[in-house]
């Protein structure tokens, strides 16, 4: 009788070990399948767009004449429109946040995807729109606080 019980216990233990091995194998195989789905081939076609972050560009104007805030804003938007087109103007959304007419320095807010194009627009403005002045970009920052700090501290003696 005892022998039968021992045999049954041994059988159950061995069966449980075999089942554990099968479960482990299955787990490893399914993990491989899930890994396949995670690869680049199975990425969805329609991607979610990235969040648009803001960038602040500090610039200064070197000129003998005075510039009003509206004039500077118009010049920059005109430059954008002429150089990159209305499409880029809409996506970049350049906005003159601050302009100090005494220092002739200002801060422009733009979308982060257009920070390099904005510098190119400055060059276009210097060459084709403004003939008696030069717009010089000083620094690109991620916060307005930092931009203001740079605007007042960045080598003011050059302009005054």
């Amino acid at each position: 009788m005892n022998n039968i019980i021992y045999a049954a216990v041994l059988l159950s233990i061995s069966l449980s070990i075999i089942s554990l091995i099968i479960v482990l194998q299955m787990y490893l195989q399914t993990r491989k399948i899930f890994r396949l789905f995670k690869t680049k081939r199975f990425k969805p076609i329609i991607k979610k767009p990235l969040k648009i972050r803001k960038r602040y560009i500090v610039f200064m104007i070197l000129s003998s004449r005075e510039f009003r805030r509206e004039e500077v804003a118009n010049i920059i938007s005109k430059g954008f429109k002429e150089f990159l087109g209305i499409n880029s103007l809409i996506q970049a959304d350049p906005y003159l946040i601050y302009y100090d007419p005494r220092l002739k320095r200002g801060i422009i807010r733009i979308a982060h995807i257009y920070k390099d194009q904005t510098l190119a627009v400055f060059d276009y403005v210097n060459r084709y729109i403004l003939k008696d002045a030069v717009i010089i970009p000083l620094k690109t920052t991620g916060t307005i606080k930092k931009a203001r700090k740079i605007m007042y501290k960045h080598r003011v003696e050059l302009q005054l």
């Binding site: 767009p49 969040k51 209305i86 996506q91 970049a92 959304d93």
Partner: peptide
Amino acid sequence: PYRIVSRIFRRIILFRSKD
């Protein structure tokens, strides 16, 4: 006007990012 269209653009990006 283009400033409003750029605002609409930002809204569309926001709504699409939420699917």
